[in-house]
Simulated scan of single mutants.
Amino acid sequence: MDHNGTYLDAKTSTVEGSNGVTYAYRRLGPQGGRPLVLLQHFRGNLDNWDPDLVDALAASRDVIAFDNSGVAATTGSTPTAIAQMADDAIVFVEALGLDRIDLLGFSIGSFVAQEVALTRPSLVAKVVLASTAPQGAPGIQGWAPDIIAAIGEPKTGPEGYLHAFFTDSPASRAAGQQVLGRLYSRTEGRDEQTSWRTRNAQYDAVLKWGTPNFGLLQRLTAIQQPVFIANGDDDRMILPWYSHLTAALIPDAFVKLYPDSAHGFLFQHARAFAADVHAFLDA
């Protein structure tokens, strides 16, 4: 069975998990292979995935995007710890009847992806970590004031998004404007906005993840799956050197940095990144 159409046309479905949470999700692309499950960024919902990226990923792959517990149209409460978010993500995957998946986690979603791989290794075949950092690494307990002002205030807007997700170069800013246009091009059946409570809970989880603890870094040596780590070369939210640190801790991992891009590199370079993801998952 195929999920035809594009991400902009994909309907939002729901499934109830064993935890009593009703999860909102969209599914796109041909079924039959191992599904690729997407884990979203800080304060993001289903409409914060770039349609160009999802369409490119779903060209030959079953792709599933979802709102985790308490986020946007999904019921329940947003946890204040990454480990619980991972447990809730596992419940969602089980509710769909899936027993083997690939994961693509972006930003806070990449933290959740690490935890899923550690908590339920038999579930996960391969992992893509976009804009990531390991738990306990120094210097990530909170973000720079300009970044949290751009994306962490009650009212956020296009300028804040451009500042946090793209560089100041004309090319990156122009790409950011195009991404914004794509993010708002869906006019019907849009997801609910994430709440202020979700913002606070997720930021609490980020702060806990970033509390320095060198002992926790060694947990990543237990990830045995192949891992592709990617970032923009000028990410001011999660610095690129954390990508290299993460890769150094995971036995089978490699890093690629995308040029003249920041936190939103995977949207700015959507086609190139999707091609790299396909090559990695198909290898």
Rank of each mutant, 00 (worst) to 15 (best):
106 F>V: 15
135 Q>P: 02
178 Q>H: 15
222 A>G: 05
68 N>R: 07
75 T>D: 13
119 T>A: 13
46 L>S: 04
132 T>E: 09
154 P>M: 05
257 L>Y: 00
129 L>Y: 03
128 V>L: 07
16 E>M: 11
184 Y>K: 12
265 F>T: 00
169 S>A: 10
85 M>K: 10
82 I>A: 12
42 F>I: 00
230 A>R: 09
82 I>W: 13
105 G>K: 06
235 D>Q: 03
54 V>R: 13
113 A>Q: 12
92 F>A: 02
161 Y>D: 05
88 D>S: 00
135 Q>F: 05
19 N>Q: 08
61 R>S: 08
118 L>V: 00
112 V>L: 02
202 Q>G: 04
115 E>L: 08
216 L>I: 06
7 Y>Q: 12
132 T>N: 13
25 Y>T: 02
58 A>M: 06
283 A>M: 10
200 N>D: 15
229 I>Y: 05
96 L>V: 02
101 I>N: 07
129 L>G: 06
271 R>V: 11
51 P>K: 11
100 R>K: 12
189 G>T: 04
53 L>D: 04
94 E>D: 15
222 A>Q: 13
158 P>R: 14
187 T>D: 12
2 D>W: 10
79 P>N: 06
78 T>L: 02
1 M>S: 04
106 F>T: 10
214 F>A: 15
208 K>C: 10
128 V>K: 08
226 P>N: 07
2 D>Q: 11
47 D>E: 07
109 G>V: 11
113 A>G: 12
142 G>Y: 11
130 A>D: 06
34 R>D: 02
134 P>V: 01
11 K>T: 07
140 I>D: 08
60 S>F: 03
232 G>W: 12
274 A>F: 06
128 V>H: 01
26 R>S: 00
192 E>W: 13
205 A>Q: 05
254 F>Y: 13
251 P>Y: 02
32 G>A: 08
245 L>E: 04
160 G>Q: 13
33 G>D: 10
113 A>F: 09
211 T>H: 12
249 L>I: 00
217 L>F: 11
146 D>M: 07
225 Q>T: 06
221 T>M: 12
187 T>H: 15
174 A>W: 06
133 A>K: 02
282 D>F: 06
237 M>T: 11
95 A>C: 04
70 G>Y: 09
37 V>D: 01
78 T>W: 01
211 T>R: 11
47 D>F: 12
65 A>H: 03
186 R>L: 01
55 D>W: 07
7 Y>H: 14
167 T>C: 03
112 V>N: 05
263 H>N: 12
223 I>E: 04
261 S>T: 05
133 A>D: 07
64 I>P: 00
43 R>W: 10
171 A>Q: 11
245 L>P: 01
99 D>F: 05
46 L>R: 04
138 P>E: 09
274 A>K: 03
93 V>C: 14
109 G>D: 01
29 G>Y: 05
61 R>M: 08
243 S>W: 03
84 Q>W: 03
279 A>R: 14
156 T>M: 14
119 T>Y: 02
156 T>G: 15
11 K>S: 04
